[in-house]
């Protein structure tokens, strides 16, 4: 209520101020007009000069008067109220053409959204700080001192040993072919082809699985320059989902002392996707849910579930 009145008073002052500005502008224009026209034609030179100077003085005085008037009014107008939480952008709500340009409502939504985002990001960061997954080498604090002792044994393994472990695992599963590449130095990249269902690119660091990407059987695993494409994700939603689950599996199968067991368990788990399109969900008994087949495989029983049916 007070706000509305305030605005009303301001509006009065505003309109007066605008009139004052107009007056000021016209008087300034008059000054320059008279300067432009120069001296009028009079009999004597002194007469001409006298008339010109008085005219000029009159004009300047009127400019001065108008300017003073404007300054007086400008104090009345006052500063725009800053009590609004959105500051000056809050004035958008006064825009009468709101129906055509819903700027103000959009602005409010964006503001709420960013507030919420900040809140959730804060929660997530505090949660993640509590339970860090402790996979990467650059741990902070006390563990950093102990770490170097553990790492050499598992991270520096002769490439020959890695090759042996992988080929042994490859022989265990006849329907799964595992090719080993070393595109950059000693780290191995595995290309796993599972039946005619999927292809997985598995990036290794020694015998640790670092990252995995799952794509369809008919999708390219090589980029245009002929190298293994370890970055771009599958075009199909099914395999994007399977990639997510495979990443979850990487984090689940952890046994730092016996990395070969981890790789074997992961491959066993991955092999259960051979019937990706053939197995209905073990809970709801259906093949499809939201257009996707059961993409989740239980880590122990390897049973198939939809992502939403697994809890």
């Amino acid at each position: 209520m007070a706000d509305a009145m305030n605005v009303g008073v301001n509006l009065e002052a505003f309109s007066q101020a605008i009139t004052a500005i107009q007056a000021l502008r016209s008087s300034v224009t008059r000054v320059f007009d008279s300067l432009k026209d120069g001296m009028k034609n009079k009999e004597t030179l002194e007469g001409r000069e006298k008339v010109f100077i008085t005219e000029f003085q009159d004009n300047l005085q009127s400019v001065n008067r108008d300017l003073n008037e404007l300054e007086r009014l400008s104090t009345l107008v006052g500063r725009p109220s800053e009590s609004h939480p959105l500051h000056n952008s809050g004035l958008l709500s006064l825009d009468p053409v709101q129906d055509k340009t819903p700027l103000y409502s959009q602005l409010l939504q964006a503001y709420k959204w960013s507030n919420k985002l900040q809140y959730h990001a804060g929660l997530a960061s505090s949660l993640l700080n509590q339970q860090s997954l402790k996979r990467s080498a650059n741990q902070m604090g006390a563990s950093a001192k102990r770490r170097p002792k553990v790492q050499p044994s598992t991270l520096v393994l002769p490439p020959q040993y890695v090759d042996d472990v992988i080929s042994r695992i490859g022989r265990m599963f006849p329907d799964m072919s595992i090719e080993l590449f070393r595109p950059n130095g000693t780290s191995a990249v595995l290309l796993v082809t599972l039946g005619k269902v999927l292809k997985a690119v598995v990036v290794m660091r020694s015998l640790f699985i670092d990252r995995t990407i799952v794509r369809g059987f008919n999708e390219n695993v090589h980029s245009e320059d002929g190298k293994l494409d370890i970055w771009s994700k599958s075009n199909y939603q099914v395999f994007q989902k399977v990639t997510d689950h495979a990443t979850t599996a990487l984090l689940h199968y952890q046994l730092p002392q016996m990395p070969d067991v981890v790789v074997r368990s992961f491959m066993t788990w991955l092999r259960s996707y051979i019937k990706l399109f053939q197995t209905p969900c073990q809970r709801c008994g259906k093949f499809l849910q939201e257009g996707l087949p059961p993409t989740w495989r239980d880590f122990r029983t390897l049973e198939a579930f939809h992502d939403t049916c697994r809890q």
Binding site: K196, V197, G216, F217, N218, S234, N235, Y236, V238, F239, K275, F277, Q278, P280, K286, F287, L288, G291, P293
Partner: peptide
């Protein structure tokens, strides 16, 4: 068309359900 699968026998039941 079910794009991700290439073996008709594998995904036929799934396609039927769809």
């Amino acid at each position: 068309e079910y794009c991700p699968c290439v073996v008709p026998g594998d995904c036929w039941n799934l396609m039927k359900e769809f």
